[in-house]
């Protein structure tokens, strides 16, 4: 891509104050998103993966400014969203939309499908005819029929409800859609239908996706690039193929090793990762992954590594990435 990126995120932070006790004193800060840089080209899919609590959903919401970032800059289609006034931000939002995990919870049960899908037209002041025509077109686009427009969400299956959610997101011709675990709540056979629909729409409409998921195999199939998050930070970013073939960060290696797969047996037995996500209220010093990392040395405990460029579009937040890779991950584990 020679043109400017569609989306540019720099140093994005979302910190939440934590209050406790009878006086609600501020006792700390949860660094849900702690300094994230991202770029996304038109028509590209960037996947955000990580375990629950890593901040991937908060990041997705902060990019759309559904969550007010505490620091950092988000530029979309060349405009700094933080510098926009209310009306301008609303205008920018026509082109950046969101699809949610739970289609049941994200659709108003008292609205008909035509009102759910057409709501964006009302907000942005389109005429009734434009709205009706638009709704028809959108329903066809996501594989629903025109007579579905008069029905209520409860009359649909989970997969169909997710199609309604997708139609709503596409109403005002967005160029960018944040998909937050869009198929996690669906049955396996229906997941595949919705995944295919998202791919088809991307090809037809040139959409860029920020695809938030915990399913590494789905991401491998779906994404162009992947960013792995741990405790509010990106620990590795790479083209999808490279990430799966040559994971550089020990956390990425652990995630891949732990993911069950159809062809490999006994992945869980090889999973080297011990322990659980530390509290984001008191992240460990140095590299935040070091308490669970089999390769951690003194430097990792003392000094936080930056996201280092390793060439070929790969970057990892690890002091020992090259060393670990050179030995194929067989480097003698350091003393824990």
């Amino acid at each position: 891509m020679t043109t400017a990126p569609l989306l540019e995120v720099e140093g994005l932070q979302v910190h939440y104050p934590v209050h406790r006790g009878p006086l609600q004193r501020r006792v700390g800060t949860v660094r849900a998103v702690d300094g994230v840089d991202l770029t996304l080209a038109r028509g590209e899919t960037l996947a955000l993966v990580g375990e629950s609590g890593c901040g991937k959903s908060t990041l997705g919401r902060a990019v759309l400014r559904l969550e007010e970032p505490t620091a950092g800059r988000v530029a979309f289609e060349g405009r700094d969203l933080g510098a926009l006034g209310k009306a301008e931000l609303r205008d920018a939002r026509r082109r950046m939309r969101m699809i949610f995990q739970d289609p049941q919870a994200s659709l108003n049960p008292r609205f008909r499908v035509e009102d759910i899908v057409g709501e964006a037209y009302d907000i942005h002041g389109l005429s009734r005819q434009e709205r009706a025509a638009g709704v028809r077109e959108l329903l066809a686009l996501v594989g629903l029929s025109p007579e579905h427009a008069r029905r209520f969400p409860h009359e649909f299956s989970g997969g169909q409800r997710q199609r309604i959610g997708i139609a709503r997101a596409l109403a005002l011709h967005p160029s960018f859609v944040v998909c937050d675990e869009p198929v996690s709540a669906l049955d396996v056979s229906v997941q595949a239908q919705v995944v295919n629909l998202l791919l088809e729409l991307q090809e037809k409409l040139g959409l860029a996706y920020l695809f938030i998921s915990h399913d590494l195999h789905l991401v491998e199939f779906f994404a162009d690039r992947v960013a792995v998050m741990y405790l509010g930070r990106i620990v590795e970013t790479a083209p999808a193929k490279a990430l799966y073939r040559r994971p550089r960060h020990p956390y990425t290696r652990a995630l891949l090793a732990a993911s069950p797969s159809l062809d490999g047996e006994g992945h869980h037995r090889r999973a080297p990762l011990q322990g659980e996500l530390p509290s984001p209220l008191a992240p460990p010093p140095g590299c935040t992954f070091h308490p669970r990392c089999p390769f951690a040395v003194d430097r990792c405990r003392a000094e936080a590594p930056p996201l280092r460029d390793l060439g070929d579009g790969v970057a990892a937040r690890c002091w020992r990435a090259e060393e670990i890779e050179a030995t194929g991950g067989l480097l003698a584990p350091a003393h824990a």
Partner: peptide, 26 residues
């Protein structure tokens, strides 16, 4: 066969890049 086809994996569907979804619902 259909369920196995739905499981995403790298390179599924070849150049068409589609999963072998089972049509319809349960």
């Amino acid at each position: 066969q259909g369920l196995l086809g739905c499981v995403p994996r790298a390179g599924a569907g070849g150049t068409s890049r589609r999963l072998n979804a089972i049509p319809g619902t349960v």
